[in-house]
Each structure stands twice: as C-alpha cells, then as structure tokens.
Nucleic acid binder design. Structure first.
Lengths: 211, 211
DNA sequence: ACAGCGATCTTAGCGGTGTCAAGATGATCT
DNA sequence: AGATCATCTTGACACCGCTAAGATCGCTGT
C-alpha cells in the first residue's frame, strides 16, 4: 500500500520523526508564535497522527526541551561568530552582547521557549554551561581573557552572571515597542543596544581585582 | 444610561465578583503556579459557574491583565518602601533594585504573569510608566535625583531602562537554582543580589555628564 | 406598587488540547 | 517464512477557552 502521490518518502514508518517534529515545531513557532504551538499542531505540521509524538517524547514539555536545545545551540553559534568577528579586545564583550540580544529579536518565539523550558526546570539547559564550547563558557572565557589571570574565579563567575542577566533583561525589554522613540534617539536598534550595554558597563573590560 | 462608569464594579448578585475573581486567580497562582491558572479554575475557586467571568472580562487575557495590574501596584509599593527605607543617597538605587528582585522571588508566579501580559501587548502596562507614582517613574526620579539637573533627559531615560533591564534579568536568572553555590559564596540570597547589582554598576550614582 | 428592563449568573454545547490504551502496520532478525 | 518489536493510528477521556440562550434578581420609571 503505497500512497506514491509525490516524491514524499514517508513509509508510514517515518524515517526520522523525532527530528521532523522538532523542525515542525520551530516552523510553527516562527510562523505563528508560541501560543499556536500545540502538540497536535506539530503532529499536523509533520503529517502524523496526534499521538505519534508520544513515541519519541514523554510529553509536550520534552518536545519543547528539544526545541529549546536547538535554540541554545543556534544562539551559541551566533555568539561564537560575534566573538570571532571582533578583532580588538575592548569590543569583544560588547560584540557578544549585541549578538545575544539580536538573536533574541530575530527569533523571539524560539527565545521565549528557550527560557520557558529553563524556568520549568529551575535550571539553565545542560548545553549552556556544561560543555566547554557552550555559550555560557564562551562569555566566561571572554571575561577571563579580558580580566587576566590574577582575578579570582568567583569574580569571573559573578561578572559572567551579571552580564548574562543584563543581556537577558535587555533582550526581553527591547521587545516592548514603547522604547522606539529612545531607539531612534540612539540611531536605530543596534545603536540603542550598544548604548544600553555600554551603560551597563560590564561589557567593557573593567573587571579588576576588587578593592 | 445611568451607569456612566463602566469600571464601576457595584455589588449586584455575587457581591464584587470582579474583585473576587482577581483574588481567586492570585490565590491559585501562589498555591499551584501559572500552569494551573485556567479561567475555569478561577471560577471554581470563586464559587461561580465557568461562564460567569465573561461578564466582567472580555477573555482570559483581560483577567490576567487585571491580575498583573495588582502585581505592578504591589511591586510599586515594595519599591517605594525600599526608597523610603534607604536614608543615604549612595545606597538608594541598590536598595530599590534589591527590593525589586526580592519581590520577584517572593511572588514568582505573579511576577511571571506580569511580564507575560506585557509581552502579549508589546508594551509595559500603563500603570508602570504613565502615572507619576509608578514604579518606573520612581526609578527614573531616583536617577534624576542622584545625577543632578545637568544630565540630559535622554541619558536619565537610558539609565533607567538599563537598570530595569538588569533588574529584570537578575530577577529571572536568580530563580535558577544552579546559582546556589555562588549565592553561598556571597553570603546568602541578598548578598548575592547586592554583589551582582553593584557589579552591574548602574545602581551606584555614577550617572555623570557623558564625555 | 408594579411592570419592565437590564445587568448578572447558569446551563448546555462547540471546537480544541494533552494524554493514554488498544489495535494496526511494517522493518528486522532468526 | 514467521515472530518480534518499535512505530504509528484510532478512539476515547477530561479539561480548556469561549459562546449562545435562558433563568434570576435588583434597579428604575410611571
């Protein structure tokens, strides 16, 4: 019994349904936003029955976890690119910060899912801090690189967290359109970001031995 | 034609059902978290039928707006108390920032609803920036007070936004329990908050005429 | 006073959702 | 080949947001 309508290689046992579901979820997310992301809609988008996902994910939350994981990896790539792009040391952290916030603006729905999943588990996803090439380690490494070896680990950690908090706060707040007049005053989106980030101060190499 | 006031919730059948629904919603929120906050559950908690809320709110979002409004007012009270509590000028903004983050930790579910509602409308709620005694104006006023009259309005605005971004980011991030070791290193919750906030720097009066 | 009106609340029902149990299907292994 | 087992479908349950129609009760004008 072959449908054989299109070159649609879908042999009722889908090749890689797990991957297809994650892709479908991201497609819906970018197209219709987070409120439209139901498990049934994902199954519909992938062309399978509403119960099919349960053979690959324990529940809806686990699918969202997989989606969020893809998002964190994409964010890590964007930040790494920003790091490699910035030649001088002084602008390193600012460049990374800008890339972070711009990612959140390019993929607002995905960014939201990424943090919603983290909140439900009371922890940032594993990929963000465990692996050596994670986004968190990238920022921490940048701070370490900028600050030099004499700064204590705990202070580097603190600086990293402070920077991450500021970037996340800015990412969420800059979605509010009431900031548009201020954005114009600072020469557009990126100018506004740089102004806020530089005002926050910790994206410039001022991490020094305290006291 | 006599009922000139639309929002004039007068007790007819139930008493003040509108208010009772908001209270019930907050009760559910604090007891079971945001995922349990369905319109039907709120009606159940208030002891009315599932359709009763629709005579006081257009839809679920409007109820959440009312809940969020209560939250913003409570946050404003907490921040004002912090402002009045801090005697010296130098610790003013830090004190306000700490009170902000601590509010988000005391009422995590409510805090989340407050921002979810804002996100859905692409703007912060009216009460936060329009009214003169709002939380936003309180922070801006503190910056203006600390910076003096020679600083331009646009820079005060930028400092306020940067501070708000940092506080919001810290509020969300500090919910993650992976920071607990670092929190202990800084002498508990409040010590950690003060360390991050002071590291961010803009909670100390360093708003000066640029360049 | 009393009829009418309109605001308030209920009942019933629609389509949608997450999730599970049981059956159909098909790839793989001996 | 036949058996096995992961995979996918069907069907069902409870809950959800939301709407329409009817019941209830206070207010108002005469």
């Amino acid at each position: 019994m072959s449908t054989a309508a299109v070159a649609d290689t879908r042999p009722y046992h889908h090749g890689d349904l797990r991957r297809a579901l994650v892709d479908a979820a991201i497609r819906i997310l970018e197209r219709e936003g987070p409120s439209a992301l139901s498990l049934r809609a994902v199954a519909r988008e992938a062309g399978v029955s509403p119960a099919a996902p349960y053979h690959h994910f324990k529940d809806k939350g686990e699918l969202l976890d997989a989606v969020a994981h893809v998002g964190w990896e994409a964010l890590g790539v964007a930040m790494t690119e920003a790091k490699d792009r910035s030649a001088d040391l002084s602008g390193l952290l600012t460049e990374i910060g800008v890339s972070y916030v711009q990612f959140s603006q390019d993929h607002p729905a995905l960014y939201r899912v990424m943090y919603d999943c983290s909140r439900d588990k009371d922890a940032l996803p594993e990929g963000i801090q465990d692996k050596e090439d994670s986004a968190y380690c990238l920022v921490r490494g940048a701070f370490r690189h900028v600050a030099g070896p004499q700064v204590a680990d705990v202070d580097i950690e603190l600086a990293t967290i402070a920077a991450w908090c500021a970037a996340h706060g800015l990412a969420e707040m800059s979605m509010f359109k009431q900031f548009t007049p201020l954005k114009e005053a600072f020469g557009g989106e990126e100018g506004f970001l740089r102004a806020v980030l530089s005002h926050l101060g910790m994206f410039t190499p001022r991490v020094l031995p305290q006291d």
